[in-house]
């Protein structure tokens, strides 16, 4: 049933996102074409001899910026709205009558939210790549990457791959935990008989403050005895940053688990659709 929930969740969200990403791609390619034809040196030289191309590019970059911001905001709004509206308003009457387990409902929303967050990142990188096509050669790029690897190893005595993997894991875990934190706040809001949205906001703020405190304590503990390493450049500082990233990942895993179980048990034991 989880697969079916994910399928329908994807269907419900893609009708919003596919047109947005389609528009983004078309705008990016259009901009790139104008750039290639009218102002090949747009990025390297401030002045250009083609006024029309400059104006068109000015407009399309503004549009591009608005669209990117819009998509990021939309992703966030969608994550909140699909959870709140689909489960806790009238639509919840249908979702909770389905023969599915509560955790499947939560997980399907979470996974699809994650997928759209990932798509958002990938698409932004893709547009950057399209913009910069022709301004570099693959040879130069691979050389630059290779030298970055050796530089990183020289300075920190760590493999860049390992560091990148840890960073990626941190971002992934952090995203999951942030989404689950929104979910648990919405679920806590449902415990109130009135002003549920206000209560959800309140819950979110309280959780944020609690996390800030825990995070600060964690940082303080880690920083004690490591202060000079942080100030210093080089290998020791890198070790500290390394620990900081992995420590945060572990903390976020713990928070995420707590949020997940909190959300699920509220939905299971205290479900009160209006």
């Amino acid at each position: 049933m989880l697969g079916k929930l994910i399928k329908h969740e994807t269907r419900a969200t893609s009708r919003i996102f596919l047109p947005l990403y389609g528009a983004l791609l078309i705008l990016t390619i259009f901009t790139k074409l104008v750039m290639a034809i009218g102002a090949p040196d747009f990025f390297s030289e401030a002045a250009s001899n083609n006024r029309v191309a400059e104006i068109i590019l000015g407009i399309s970059f503004t549009l591009y910026f608005i669209l990117i911001v819009g998509i990021c905001v939309m992703t966030m709004v969608m994550i909140i709205q699909r959870f709140y509206k689909n489960l806790f308003t009238d639509e919840g009457y249908l979702m909770f009558s389905l023969p599915v387990k509560t955790w499947e409902l939560v997980l399907s929303k979470l996974l699809v939210g994650m997928i759209w967050s990932a798509v958002c990142t990938v698409m932004i990188v893709l547009t950057f790549f399209i913009f910069s096509l022709g301004t570099f050669s693959m040879m130069e790029l691979s050389q630059a990457i290779r030298s970055a690897y050796s530089m990183f190893y020289l300075q920190t005595a760590m493999e860049l791959n390992l560091f990148m993997a840890e960073l990626a894991l941190f971002i992934l875990v952090n995203t999951v935990a942030s989404i689950l934190m929104i979910y648990v706040a919405i679920a806590i809001g449902q415990l109130f008989s009135q002003h549920r949205i206000v209560a959800a906001f309140g819950a979110y703020i309280v959780i944020t403050i609690a996390l800030q405190i825990i995070g600060s304590v964690f940082m303080a503990v880690l920083a004690i005895g490591n202060l000079e390493n942080l100030v210093l450049n080089g290998r020791d500082a890198m070790t500290t940053i390394h620990w900081l990233i992995n420590g945060s990942t572990v903390l976020n895993v713990l928070f995420g688990i707590a949020f997940y179980y909190g959300t699920q048990s509220i939905m299971k034991k205290c479900l009160n659709l209006e």
């Binding site: 419900a12 009238d90 639509e91 009457y93 249908l94 009558s97």
Partner: peptide, 11 residues
Amino acid sequence: VSYLSERTYLN
């Protein structure tokens, strides 16, 4: 169980 709610729950 086939349940008809008093709300219109369809998207």
